[in-house]
C-alpha cells in the first residue's frame, strides 16, 4: 500500500516539473508514438481505447446506473427491507476517528460518482460550462479521498480479511433473498461489506492513480516506462481504459453500499453517524461477532 502512496506522491512531484522537461507526447517522443500506433507487436491500445470508448463504456455505465438500482427496487418491493427494533442495547463500534475518516470518504464519493456520470454522459448534458465544472469537481474531490484512503484501509484491514464465514454468507447471499430473521454468520463486517472494502480501497487507489495520470497528462516517470515498457501515450490510454473498467465495479458496489445502509436495513446508516450498532441487528446479521461480544460481556 505504501508503495502506491509513494508512487502517487512521486507523480504529483514530477508533474509539476513536467512543463520544464521535454514533452513526452508532443516532443521527440511524438515520432515513436506515431510509428508505434496500432503496430503488430504493440498492445494496440489506441485502437482498443477508441473502440471501447466509442461503442461500450457509456452503455455499460448506463446499464449499471439503471440495472443496479432497478434490481434493488425490485428487492425492496418483493422481499422488503429488514427492520430491527432500535430500542435494545447498543454497542459502540465506530469511534470518532473511524467516523470522520468514513465521512470524508463518503462526501468524496457522493461528489465523485455523480460527476463521473456527468462526464460519461457529457453529450446528454450538452458539454460546456456545466460538464467542465463537474470534471473539475471530479478531480478536486479526489484530494480528500486520497488523504483518507490509506488510514481507512489500515483501520478496517483486520476485519476485512476474508474467512470461512464468508463462503457461507455468499452461498445464501447474506440472507437478503428471504424475509426470515435467522442469525447469519459474519464478523464485524459481512462478506458483502468486505467485498466493498477491497473494491473501495484497491479500486479506489487504482482510480486515483489512473485519474492522476489523465489529469497531469504530460510527465515522465522513467521507472514506470522501464517497468511497463510503454510510452507515455500508451500509459494514458491504459489509464483511461482501467479508469472506466474499474469505475464499473466501484460504482456498482457504491450503489449497493448506499442501498444496504439507507434502505435495505432500516436505520443501519445511524451506526456510522452515531457510532453505535443495535443489538438486534448485530445478533442477526453479524452472529459470529455477536457471540464474541457477548462472551466479552459487551451486551
Amino acid at each position: 500500500m505504501k508503495k502506491y502512496l509513494y508512487m502517487f506522491i512521486a507523480t504529483l512531484a514530477l508533474a509539476s516539473a513536467a512543463f520544464a522537461v521535454d514533452s513526452q507526447i508532443w516532443g521527440e517522443m511524438r515520432i515513436q508514438n506515431i510509428l508505434g500506433y496500432g503496430q503488430e507487436e504493440s498492445l494496440k491500445l489506441g485502437p482498443l481505447f477508441t473502440m471501447l470508448q466509442h461503442h461500450y463504456f457509456a452503455w455499460i455505465f448506463l446499464g449499471i446506473l439503471i440495472g443496479v438500482p432497478g434490481a434493488f427496487f425490485l428487492h425492496y418491493k418483493i422481499i422488503g427491507p429488514k427492520v430491527f427494533p432500535h430500542s435494545e442495547k447498543k454497542y459502540y463500534a465506530f469511534n470518532l476517528y473511524n467516523r470522520i475518516i468514513h465521512q470524508i470518504a463518503a462526501i468524496s464519493f457522493i461528489v465523485i460518482v455523480p460527476t463521473g456520470f456527468v462526464i460519461v454522459f457529457g453529450d446528454f448534458f450538452g458539454g460546456g460550462m456545466f460538464v467542465r465544472f463537474c470534471k473539475n469537481l471530479h478531480g478536486l474531490f479526489t484530494v480528500p479521498f486520497t488523504i483518507v484512503v490509506i488510514p481507512m484501509a489500515l483501520m478496517w484491514l483486520k476485519e476485512a480479511l476474508f474467512n470461512l464465514d464468508d463462503v457461507k454468507w455468499f452461498m445464501i447471499l447474506g440472507g437478503y433473498l428471504s424475509k426470515e430473521k435467522k442469525p447469519i454468520l459474519a464478523g464485524k463486517f459481512n462478506a458483502g461489506q468486505k467485498m466493498w472494502y477491497w473494491v473501495a480501497i484497491l479500486g479506489g487507489i487504482t482510480m486515483i492513480l489512473s485519474g492522476a495520470f489523465m489529469f497531469f497528462l504530460d510527465f515522465k516517470m522513467e521507472m514506470l516506462h522501464n517497468l511497463t515498457g510503454m510510452s507515455q501515450i500508451d500509459m494514458l490510454r491504459a489509464a483511461a481504459i482501467i479508469h472506466n473498467v474499474m469505475g464499473f465495479a466501484v460504482v456498482a458496489l457504491f450503489i449497493t453500499h448506499v442501498y444496504m445502509s439507507m434502505f435495505a436495513i432500516k436505520g443501519a446508516v445511524q451506526s456510522i453517524i452515531t457510532g453505535y450498532v443495535e443489538e438486534e441487528e448485530v445478533k442477526i446479521l453479524h452472529s459470529t461477532w455477536y457471540k464474541k461480544l457477548k462472551n466479552q460481556g459487551k451486551f
Binding site: I25, G46, F49, T50, I119, G128, I233, A240
Partner: peptide, 15 residues
C-alpha cells in the same frame, strides 16, 4: 463544448 478531458488525444494516432 469541449471539457478538456483528453480522450481525443488518446484516440489520435498523430498526437
Amino acid at each position: 463544448k469541449c471539457i478538456g478531458c483528453g480522450y481525443c488525444l488518446y484516440a489520435c494516432p498523430f498526437g
